[in-house]
Amino acid sequence: MNIDLYGFGPALAAGALMTVKLALCALCLGLVLGLLGALAKTSPYKPLQWLGSTYSTLVRGVPELLWVLLMYYGTVNLMSALGEAFGNPELALNPFAAGVIALGLCFGAYATEVFRGAILAIPKGHREAGVALGMSKVRIFTRLIMPQMWRIALPGLGNLFMILMKDTALVSVISLEEIMRQAQNAVLFSKLPFTFYLVAAFMYLGLTILAMTGMHLLEKRAARGFVRTT
């Protein structure tokens, strides 16, 4: 099959790179937020519990597109006020930063639930064993809970990452030059909307397959010692 891309091939490739960058940055932010959210939700302190559940409920109840728009258009005043305080009145979030924050926020809200489930799935005895051995709270978390948590949380996180990858298309609305935006540019010049949006669709499909393969490998690695290889 030979698809004539009318010279837009390199632009689309650059778009794909931008999509991957955006997805990975949002993933990092989201993992941190999700971990903090889950810790807050499982902590014995009421205010922290409240904070964690408010975060995950609020963010999950509002569309991702709305978060993207809010982060980009809604932070203009806030950022210029911040910029004035630091002597740079032209401070503003660029589309990439706004996209990363919005998508990371959404990923984190869902990841909160995944991590919480994983933390709760670890037998209580493991924590008690840590206490009995005189480990500190932080140490129990990093040495006992975290390593076991990953294995349980990984399938859920994989699903969330696929969703995140597709949600990166939303950032095209605030004119970040990722796959979707590049396809729109190409359509503008070539007047072939179906061809280019189909190409974009297959690029996303390719990225999804890549992510699926990566996830499969990670899960296999995380499950070593749990499945008997025959």
Partner: peptide
């Protein structure tokens, strides 16, 4: 594929 792509 993203819903946005399908919509477009």
């Amino acid at each position: 594929t993203p819903l946005l792509v399908q919509l477009f």
